[in-house]
């Protein structure tokens, strides 16, 4: 059952990442990959909320492993970092790594704490 839920969550999560990335780029033209940064931060926040709220195993499979897992990405993040460095934007490449880690790890922590506070 969990396998199906993971697949369904990811089938929604992956296109959601793509559409969010497009929407961010449309509103903010930049070589810095703000779109991927946004999905990784938001997905990490939601996964933190789910973990902090100690949701049931099927809910976690659907929304955590499936949806948040597919909304967020490491492959996109790493290739962007490589391309930025190769194109001569070494500062942006380093900033992408630093900001993604700081904000991604901070978001998940915030989510866990928020959910813990709300659910007691």
């Amino acid at each position: 059952m969990n396998w199906l839920l993971v697949a369904v969550g990811a089938a929604v999560g992956a296109p959601l990442r793509y559409l969010t990335d497009r929407a961010v780029q449309l509103r903010h033209d930049s070589v810095f990959p703000w779109g991927t940064f946004t999905v990784n931060a938001c997905g990490s926040l939601v996964l933190g909320l789910l973990a902090g709220a100690s949701v049931s195993s099927p809910t976690y499979a659907l929304l955590g492993t499936g949806l948040c897992g597919a909304v967020t990405t490491y492959s996109t993040f790493s290739y962007e970092t490589l391309r930025l460095a190769e194109r001569g934007w070494k500062f942006l490449a380093a900033a992408n790594v630093a900001a993604s880690l700081l904000v991604g790890l901070g978001s998940v922590f915030l989510g866990v704490e928020l959910a813990g506070g709300l659910t007691g």
Partner: peptide, 24 residues
């Protein structure tokens, strides 16, 4: 690119679980 890059590899890799595992 949409199927293999955005879909398969984007769905395979994950940032959120990585971040959660770190805080745990």
């Amino acid at each position: 690119r949409p199927f293999l890059g955005v879909g398969v590899l984007g769905g395979f890799t994950t940032f959120s679980t990585y971040a959660l595992d770190f805080t745990e």
